[in-house]
């Protein structure tokens, strides 16, 4: 039972034209734990996350969420086969996603952003949806900002609303695509602490990040991607501990933040 990982990726290949961005990725994200995807720019980590969210369609390979195939499955003769839209929707409903650019809907208030899918997708009455949205905003510390529009919120606040929006739909898995990369340094803390709280509550999380300190302290598993291949994976102590893989050494020289230096 516990042997089925929350996310299982097998042989995932993604090509854009002639460029192969992912070349045969195998990855397991264990249930109830935080898995961090790290790697240099252009290593394919965001593409991998977007394939798992089905925002990009993988060229080859399979993805399972809680043991259920996502997007593509095996046909009767063992061939790779596109799955019907209904099953895609059902499996995808287990996934929540947080984007680098927040992607809040600019014409809706913070509350409206969180309540929207509750009403239009789940058919919840407006009042109940608003109450639930309010509770979610409270969890990320933004109940007081419920009536503000995205343009009236700081980047950190927008990202916390985006997290609340995803959590309101009660996903089993949360995907984070560089959630702090477009934030000013002084605003990353508030987002990371919300994510820390979420990890402590037992949420399964797959996080693409450059925040090595966060990865080292919160993740139970680090996956290092380089040139579209999975180079190293394991517990933070194993991946970051010495002796290190030369590519990781090089990567840490570039990305290591001062706060994390003490942790490693």
């Amino acid at each position: 039972m516990s042997t089925v990982p929350a996310i299982r990726v097998r042989g995932l290949v993604k090509r854009f034209g002639d460029v192969e961005v992912l070349s045969g990725i195998d990855l397991d994200a264990p249930r109830g734990e935080v898995t961090c995807l790290i790697g240099p720019s252009g290593s394919g980590k965001s593409t991998l996350l977007r394939c798992i969210a089905l925002l990009e369609e993988a060229t080859d390979g399979f993805i399972e969420i809680d043991g259920e195939p996502l997007g593509f499955g095996l046909g009767p003769n063992g061939e790779r086969m596109r799955l019907p839209q209904a099953s895609v929707r059902q499996v995808r409903a287990k996934i929540g996603m947080v984007f680098q650019q927040f992607n809040l809907w600019p014409h809706m208030t913070a509350l409206g952003n969180v309540a929207e899918a509750l009403v239009t997708v789940h058919g919840m009455p407006r009042a109940a949806a608003n109450a639930k949205a309010m509770a979610e905003l409270d969890k990320v510390g933004l109940a007081a900002r419920a009536e503000h529009y995205p343009s009236e919120l700081s980047g950190g606040q927008q990202q916390r609303v985006a997290i609340a929006r995803a959590l309101a739909l009660e996903p089993r898995i949360m995907l984070f695509d560089e959630p702090t990369s477009s934030l000013d340094p002084e605003l990353t803390g508030e987002v990371l602490s919300v994510m820390r709280g979420l990890a402590d509550s037992g949420m399964t999380m797959l996080v693409v990040t450059h925040e090595i300190g966060f990865a080292a302290s919160v993740a139970s598993k680090i996956v290092f991607l380089d040139h579209g291949k999975l180079l190293v994976e394991g517990a933070p102590g194993t991946v970051f501990g010495k002796p290190r893989h030369p590519r990781i050494e090089q990567f840490l020289d570039t990305y290591l933040d001062r706060g994390a230096a003490g942790l490693l």
């Binding site: 969210a53 925002l55 929707r89 995808r92 996934i95 996603m97 992607n103 899918a117 995803a166």
Partner: peptide, 8 residues
């Protein structure tokens, strides 16, 4: 894409 991920 955000709307997509929220199931709209």
């Amino acid at each position: 894409e955000a709307a997509d991920m929220c199931g709209l």
